[in-house]
Computed example of a mutant assay.
Amino acid sequence: MIKTLLSFSLLAVLLLFEIMENGNTTSFFILLGLFNHTKAHQFLFMVVLTIAFASLLGNALILLLIHQDHRFHTPMYFLLSQLSLMDMLLISTTVPKMATDYLTTSRFISSTGCGLQIFFFLTLGGGESFLLAAMSYDRYVAICHPLQYSLLMNWQVCLRMTLSSWFLGAADGLMQAVATLSFPYCSAHEIDHFFCEAPMLVRLACADTSVFEYTMYICCVLMLLIPLSLILVSYSLILAAVLHMHSVEVHRKVFGTCSSHLAVVGLFYGAAIFTYMRPKSYRSVNHDKIVSAFYTIFTPGLNPLIYSLRNSEVKGALRRWLGQCVTLNHEQ
C-alpha cells in the first residue's frame, strides 16, 4: 500500500511540476502571513508553534502506540493511525513555511512551492474527509452487525477504503493545483494568507475564473457533503440500534466511542464547509485566515486529545508504554 501511495504521489508531483513550468508565467508569490511583528502577535505566534508541536507529538504518539501494541492491530485503529498520519502531514505542509517566513521576514514562495502546498493540503484535507466516512462505517458495522464484522470490515476492505481516501484526495489536490496555477497572475503577487490556498490565490488571477470557481464548488460538494452524508447515515443507524438496546453499560460504551468520532467530524467539517462553501459575498480575508489556522493547526492537535481522553484502551496502552520506558531506564 505504501509503495502504491508513494508512486502515485510521485507521478502527481512530477505532472504538477511539468504543467506549472509550461503554463504559468508567475515565478513567485508573497505570503503576507498570519501575524505582524507586534508583541501581542509574537505571543500568538509562540502559542501557535506550541500547539503545532504538541499536535505533531500527540499524533506521533498515537501512531507509535498503535504500531507497538498488538491489541491495536485492528481495522478501527489502523484507520485512526491513518488519521494521525494525515494530521501530521497537514501541519508539516503549512506550519514550517509560516514559521520560517515570520522569523526570517522572507515571505517569498515560488509558484512550484505554492502549487505543491495546494496539492498536499487538498490531498490531506480531502483524504481525511473520506477517511472519517470510513471510520463511521467501521463503527456502524461493529455496533449494528458485530457478528459479521470480520466479513464486512476485514483487512482487505479496510485497505481499499484507506487507499481510496488517499487517491480521491490526491486527485482533487492535483486537479485544483494545476488549474489554479494555470491562470495568469499579472502584477498582484501578494497572497493575504499564511499558505497557498486555492480560493485565496484565485482572487489574484487577471482572468475570468468563474468556471473554475464553479467547478471548485462542485468538487467541495463532492469531497465534503457526500462523506458527511455517509457519516450522518451511519450514525443515524447506530443511534437507532442503540436505542433498542436495554443495557446501560452498552449505551455508555457506544456513546463514549462514537462521541469522540463525532467531535472530530464536527470540528473538521464545520471549518471546511465554512471556508470552501460560503458565497463569495460573505467572504472575509481575516475570517478565512483564522478558520484556516483552526483546521490546519488546532484541529489536528485536538484529535489525539479527543481520542485518547475518551478511549480507555488508548490510555491503558499509554500507561503500559510509559511503564516500559521507565523500566528500561532503571535497567540501564
Rank of each mutant, 00 (worst) to 15 (best):
D172G: 03
D172T: 07
L174S: 05
L174P: 00
M175I: 06
M175G: 04
Q176L: 11
A177I: 04
V178Y: 00
A179E: 12
A179L: 14
A179D: 09
T180Q: 08
L181P: 01
S182P: 03
S182I: 03
F183D: 07
Y185R: 05
C186K: 13
S187W: 11
A188L: 11
E190A: 14
D192F: 07
D192V: 07
F194W: 13
F194G: 02
F194A: 07
C196A: 15
C196K: 05
E197F: 08
A198F: 09
M200I: 04
L201W: 04
R203V: 11
R203I: 06
L204E: 13
A205F: 09
C206Y: 10
C206G: 08
A207R: 09
D208V: 01
Y214K: 10
Y214R: 14
T215S: 14
T215I: 11
T215V: 09
M216W: 12
Y217G: 10
I218S: 06
C219T: 07
C219A: 09
C220D: 14
V221F: 14
L222S: 07
L225Y: 10
I226P: 02
I226H: 01
I226G: 06
I226Q: 05
L228F: 07
L228M: 06
L230T: 01
L230M: 12
I231A: 00
L232S: 09
L232P: 01
V233W: 04
V233F: 07
S234L: 06
Y235C: 02
S236H: 08
L237R: 10
L237W: 00
L237N: 06
L239A: 13
A240R: 14
A240E: 14
A241Y: 09
A241Q: 13
H244V: 04
M245T: 09
S247P: 01
S247T: 02
V250P: 00
R252I: 11
V254A: 11
V254Q: 04
F255Q: 03
G256A: 01
G256Y: 01
T257R: 07
T257N: 10
S260P: 00
H261S: 14
L262W: 10
A263V: 02
V264H: 13
V265Y: 05
G266A: 15
L267H: 13
L267T: 09
L267N: 13
F268L: 12
A272L: 06
I273R: 09
I273D: 08
